[in-house]
């Protein structure tokens, strides 16, 4: 299961994605050599979600290819964890919180095998990790937004992946959930995992991430936060949108203070 040290964690080469002949992402080249916490930022419509969906094979590539630990994504399914946007499913579906987290173990189980006691205990441990163990038997529709988000995080944890892709896990959640997500990112990183997070709050970028991918239909810049998350690159990514740049400016000032 442990990948060879030589292959990059993620290698995106010459990726272009188009919806109905309208390009959404152009010529993306992106290589992550070592495990890292990566924030993907950019204005609305910049293709942030599309980037991770393209990596996951959920949207077709017009050109290019993606490799995870040196192999095509289709052959690395068990190494990849996914946290979709919360709104992507119907929460009135007849399932309990534990049912949903157990879905994370399905990939390892394969066809026909049912989740057993071992999977159950593991799923409960994952729920414990995001602070939802008490609600394991709840119907998922009875959860608050933040709790639903954490259920998805627990499901991703249950996948025991090496690389996680998360689509706005901190959008519209309460402070406690944001804290849970943040702590989880740190723990995953400490375990040698790689996490790519579509993120919208520029103020927290320096605090949360080691590297940034700055995106606006094309790759504007990528690299360590200290050298890449600069006023110049932000301007290139967001153009002259003042409120966003002000928020970013605040983040930059904080970053400078902490150095």
């Amino acid at each position: 299961m442990t990948p060879p040290a030589s292959a990059p964690v993620l290698d995106i080469h010459d990726m272009t994605v188009a919806y109905h002949r309208k390009p959404v992402l152009w010529d993306i080249d992106l290589t992550l050599d070592a495990p890292s916490l990566v924030g993907i930022i950019g204005p609305n419509g910049a293709g942030k979600s599309t980037l991770i969906k393209a990596v996951l094979g959920l949207v077709p590539l017009a050109t290019g290819d993606v490799r995870v630990f040196g192999k095509p994504v289709e052959r690395q399914r068990l190494a990849i964890g996914y946290v979709p946007q919360r709104e992507s499913v119907d929460w009135d579906f007849p399932a309990s919180v534990l049912d949903v987290v157990l879905m994370g173990t399905y990939g390892q189980l394969g066809f026909l095998r049912r989740p057993g006691r071992r999977e159950r205990q593991w799923a409960l441990a994952c729920l414990e990790h995001v602070g939802l163990a008490d609600l394991a038997q709840r119907q998922i529709g009875q959860l608050s937004g933040g709790q639903q988000q954490r259920t998805f995080l627990a499901r991703a944890l249950a996948q025991r992946a090496q690389i996680y892709l998360m689509d706005e896990p901190m959008a519209g959640v309460d402070a406690a959930t944001e804290r849970v997500v943040f702590d989880l990112l740190r723990e995953l990183r400490a375990d040698g995992k790689t996490v790519l997070v579509v993120h919208h709050d520029l103020r927290t970028v320096p605090e949360y991430f080691e590297r940034v991918v700055m995106l606006n239909m094309r790759l504007v810049a990528t690299g360590p936060v200290e050298t890449t998350f600069t006023a110049e690159n932000l301007h290139k990514t967001y153009g002259g949108r003042l409120p966003i740049l002000e928020a970013a400016g605040e983040a930059l000032r904080r970053q400078e203070r902490s150095e």
Binding site: L56, L78, I80, F93, A95, V100, M103, Y106, G107
Partner: peptide, 22 residues
């Protein structure tokens, strides 16, 4: 009965099912 888990997953969250390689 045989594909209960697969049907459940693909009905609830087809994108996640695809990510897992189903």
């Amino acid at each position: 009965v045989a594909l209960y888990k697969e049907f459940k997953l693909v009905s609830f969250d087809p994108a996640f099912a695809r990510v897992q390689g189903w």
